[in-house]
Amino acid sequence: MRNSRSLVIIGVALFLGLAAVLVAAKWMGEQGAAGSRVAVAAVDIGQGSRLAPASVQLVDWPAGSVPPGAITDPKLLAERVTRADIARGEPVLESKLAPPGTTGGLSAVVAAGKRAMTVRVNDVVGVAGFALPGNYVDILVNLQGTTSDAGTQQQSISKIVLERILVLAVAQESNRDDTKPRVVNAVTLELAPDQVEKLDLARSIGSLSLVLRNQVDPQPANTDGATRESVLGLPPAKAAPAPVRAQAAPRPAAPAPAPVRRPEGVLVIRGLDAAPQATH
């Protein structure tokens, strides 16, 4: 009795195990059949490069993990330009491609509504070469104290005028290589139109410096700027009073003419002649 019961239990277990294997095999077969072919980079593709047929290949991708914006039709990649670096084996996403019809070069990297502007830098202004493409910087302007024609004294000040500005390129290269710093003489920045105007004025009235910032820190600085008094801990300088212009002295009024006094006397009439005669 016990042996027959054990055989039944073993048989049921074998049946359930075989059924589980068949169900798992069927599920895996369905998942493989429902997979998609996704375009991935066959080689490392740099920013602003035009895609070539040899640089992209289609590979099988599980249907449940296809990234949003993945390209499944190779025809959609013809003559497209990349907006960001794409590593080998990485899916080619629509977000990393410039709009169709865009020509290659730096213009394909500039976002819609933005402008690219180049400023001259040196090894100090350029954060010792650590301001690389893809980094974010703040722009600092230093204004020296001047005296206006009216005699008003304008104090020296150092102030952050633009924040979280994307570096598009350094010198003539836009490749994002973070392995080592590069000391260059020019940096190209991505700016909004109003920021372009502010930066153009700032570099004409003072000296510029770049301040490297954390890429994931969106908080604004909200500073009042640094002056000579704030750095040295001195009280704020009082504005020099405007010079008072000397007023012309008023001209004295002309004296009124003295009234003409007629001599007092008696009028004597003799015939047809009349002559006054003084009295004592």
Rank of each mutant, 00 (worst) to 15 (best):
S95E: 10
S95W: 02
K96P: 00
K96H: 07
K96N: 11
L97S: 08
A98H: 08
P99L: 12
P99N: 14
P99M: 07
P100M: 08
G101Y: 09
T102K: 11
T103E: 10
G105K: 08
G105I: 04
G105D: 03
L106W: 08
L106I: 13
S107K: 15
A108M: 06
A108Q: 11
V110P: 09
V110I: 14
V110T: 12
V110C: 11
V110F: 10
A111S: 14
A111Y: 03
A111M: 07
A112W: 08
R115G: 06
R115L: 11
A116I: 11
T118V: 05
T118Q: 13
V119W: 06
R120I: 14
N122R: 10
N122Y: 04
N122Q: 06
D123A: 10
V124T: 09
V125I: 14
V127P: 09
G129R: 10
G129W: 05
G129E: 07
G129A: 07
L132V: 05
L132T: 09
P133N: 15
G134H: 14
N135T: 12
Y136I: 00
V137L: 06
D138A: 07
D138P: 02
I139F: 04
V141P: 00
N142E: 09
L143S: 01
L143R: 07
G145Y: 02
G145S: 14
T146F: 04
T146Q: 02
S148Y: 02
D149S: 04
A150Y: 04
G151K: 07
G151R: 06
T152H: 04
T152Y: 01
T152K: 14
Q153K: 08
Q154S: 10
Q154R: 07
Q154W: 04
Q154L: 03
Q154D: 04
Q155P: 03
S158T: 03
S158W: 00
I160S: 03
I160L: 09
E163D: 08
R164A: 07
R164I: 01
R164V: 01
I165G: 11
L166V: 01
L166R: 15
L168M: 11
L168Y: 02
A169H: 10
Q172D: 10
E173R: 15
E173Y: 02
S174A: 13
N175D: 12
D178P: 02
D178C: 01
D178I: 01
T179P: 08
T179K: 15
T179Q: 13
K180M: 02
K180G: 03
R182Y: 01
R182I: 00
V183C: 02
V183S: 15
V184F: 01
V184Q: 12
V184N: 06
A186L: 05
A186T: 12
A186W: 00
A186C: 02
V187T: 04
L189F: 04
L189K: 07
L189M: 08
L189H: 07
E190Y: 01
E190T: 02
